[in-house]
Lab assay of single mutants.
Amino acid sequence: QKEELKEKAKEAVKRGNKDKARELLKRAGISEEEAKKIIKKIE
């Protein structure tokens, strides 16, 4: 489940939808700070 949400978040970032990505990562139980780092890494 968590990995699936991370994959979806990756796709969202690639489409330029960072808010959606952050939302998905939060749903995966990832903190706001972690989510920001992950999104930065994907960009």
Rank of each mutant, 00 (worst) to 15 (best):
Q1F: 14
Q1D: 13
Q1W: 15
Q1E: 12
Q1I: 13
Q1S: 14
Q1R: 12
Q1K: 11
Q1G: 12
K2F: 15
K2T: 12
K2A: 13
K2V: 14
K2E: 11
K2W: 15
K2D: 10
K2P: 08
K2Q: 13
K2H: 11
K2I: 15
E3I: 07
E3T: 08
E3Y: 08
E3W: 11
E3S: 08
E4W: 15
E4R: 10
E4M: 13
E4G: 09
E4L: 13
E4C: 13
E4K: 11
E4V: 11
E4A: 13
L5V: 05
L5K: 02
L5N: 03
L5T: 04
L5C: 04
L5R: 01
L5W: 10
L5G: 01
L5M: 07
L5H: 03
K6H: 13
K6Q: 11
K6D: 04
K6V: 15
K6E: 11
K6Y: 15
K6C: 13
K6P: 02
K6S: 06
K6R: 10
K6L: 15
K6G: 04
E7I: 09
E7K: 10
E7P: 00
E7Q: 11
E7F: 07
E7Y: 07
E7N: 11
E7W: 08
E7A: 11
E7T: 08
K8G: 04
K8I: 08
K8Q: 14
K8H: 07
K8M: 15
K8Y: 09
K8L: 14
K8R: 12
K8N: 05
K8P: 00
K8T: 04
K8V: 04
K8S: 07
K8C: 13
K8F: 07
A9V: 15
A9C: 05
A9Q: 01
A9G: 01
A9Y: 04
A9P: 01
A9E: 01
A9T: 03
K10G: 05
K10S: 07
K10M: 12
K10P: 01
K10H: 07
K10E: 08
K10W: 10
K10T: 08
E11I: 08
E11R: 06
E11K: 06
E11Q: 09
E11V: 06
E11W: 06
E11Y: 04
E11G: 03
E11T: 06
E11F: 03
A12W: 12
A12Y: 13
A12S: 04
A12H: 10
A12V: 02
A12N: 03
A12E: 13
A12T: 02
A12L: 14
A12K: 02
V13A: 08
V13E: 01
V13W: 12
V13D: 00
V13G: 02
V13S: 02
V13Q: 03
V13H: 04
V13F: 08
V13P: 01
V13C: 06
V13L: 12
V13I: 12
V13N: 02
K14A: 08
K14F: 10
K14L: 15
K14G: 06
K14H: 11
K14R: 14
K14Q: 10
K14C: 09
R15W: 06
R15H: 11
R15P: 00
R15M: 14
R15V: 08
R15I: 09
R15K: 11
G16M: 04
G16W: 01
G16F: 04
G16Y: 03
G16V: 02
G16H: 04
G16S: 02
G16I: 02
G16P: 01
N17E: 14
N17R: 09
N17F: 13
N17G: 03
N17L: 11
N17W: 10
N17S: 05
N17Y: 12
N17M: 11
N17H: 11
K18Y: 15
K18V: 14
K18W: 13
K18T: 12
K18C: 14
K18A: 08
K18H: 12
D19Q: 11
D19F: 07
D19G: 07
D19R: 12
D19T: 09
D19E: 11
D19P: 05
D19N: 09
D19K: 12
D19W: 07
D19Y: 07
D19I: 09
K20F: 13
K20Y: 14
K20E: 15
K20P: 01
K20S: 09
K20L: 15
A21W: 05
A21D: 01
A21T: 01
A21K: 02
A21Q: 01
A21S: 00
R22S: 07
R22F: 15
R22K: 12
R22V: 14
R22C: 14
R22D: 04
R22H: 12
R22A: 11
R22M: 15
R22L: 15
R22E: 12
R22I: 15
E23H: 05
E23C: 06
E23P: 00
E23S: 05
E23A: 06
E23M: 05
E23Y: 03
E23I: 06
E23N: 04
E23Q: 06
E23L: 06
L24D: 03
L24W: 05
L24S: 00
L24I: 08
L24F: 08
L24A: 03
L24Y: 10
L24R: 01
L24M: 06
L24N: 01
L24T: 01
L25A: 04
L25M: 02
L25H: 00
L25D: 02
L25Y: 05
L25G: 00
L25F: 07
L25E: 01
L25V: 00
L25P: 01
K26W: 06
K26G: 05
K26H: 09
K26P: 00
K26F: 08
K26Q: 10
K26V: 13
K26R: 12
R27F: 09
R27L: 15
R27I: 10
R27T: 09
R27N: 11
R27Y: 08
R27K: 13
R27S: 12
R27W: 10
R27D: 10
R27M: 14
R27H: 10
A28Y: 05
A28M: 07
A28Q: 02
A28H: 03
A28N: 02
A28K: 01
A28V: 04
A28L: 09
A28W: 02
G29Y: 00
G29M: 01
G29K: 02
G29E: 02
G29F: 00
G29C: 05
G29Q: 02
G29T: 00
I30V: 11
I30N: 03
I30G: 00
I30R: 00
I30M: 12
I30K: 04
I30F: 15
I30C: 11
I30S: 03
I30W: 12
I30Q: 01
S31V: 03
S31Q: 05
S31M: 04
S31W: 03
S31F: 03
S31K: 05
S31N: 06
S31C: 06
S31T: 10
S31E: 07
E32W: 08
E32R: 05
E32P: 08
E32S: 07
E32V: 07
E32H: 06
E32Q: 06
E32L: 08
E32A: 09
E33V: 08
E33P: 05
E33N: 06
E33Q: 08
E33A: 09
E33T: 08
E33C: 07
E33M: 07
E33D: 10
E33R: 09
E34I: 05
E34H: 05
E34P: 00
E34K: 04
E34V: 06
E34G: 04
E34Q: 06
E34D: 08
E34A: 07
E34S: 04
E34Y: 04
A35K: 01
A35Q: 05
A35D: 00
A35L: 05
A35W: 04
A35F: 04
A35Y: 04
A35G: 04
A35T: 06
K36A: 15
K36R: 11
K36T: 14
K36G: 10
K37C: 12
K37R: 12
K37T: 10
K37H: 10
K37N: 12
K37G: 11
K37Q: 13
I38K: 01
I38Y: 10
I38E: 02
I38G: 01
I38N: 00
I38W: 12
I38Q: 03
I39E: 00
I39Q: 01
I39D: 00
I39P: 00
I39N: 00
I39R: 00
I39K: 00
I39V: 05
I39S: 01
I39C: 00
K40D: 15
K40H: 14
K40M: 14
K40L: 13
K40C: 11
K40P: 01
K40W: 15
K40S: 13
K40Q: 14
K41G: 11
K41A: 14
K41W: 13
K41M: 13
K41T: 12
K41F: 12
K41S: 13
K41I: 12
K41V: 11
K41Y: 12
K41R: 11
I42K: 03
I42L: 12
I42Q: 05
I42N: 03
I42E: 04
I42V: 09
I42W: 15
I42T: 06
I42C: 05
E43Q: 08
E43K: 04
E43H: 05
E43C: 10
E43S: 06
E43T: 05
E43L: 11
E43P: 03
E43N: 04
E43W: 08
E43V: 07
E43M: 09
E43Y: 07
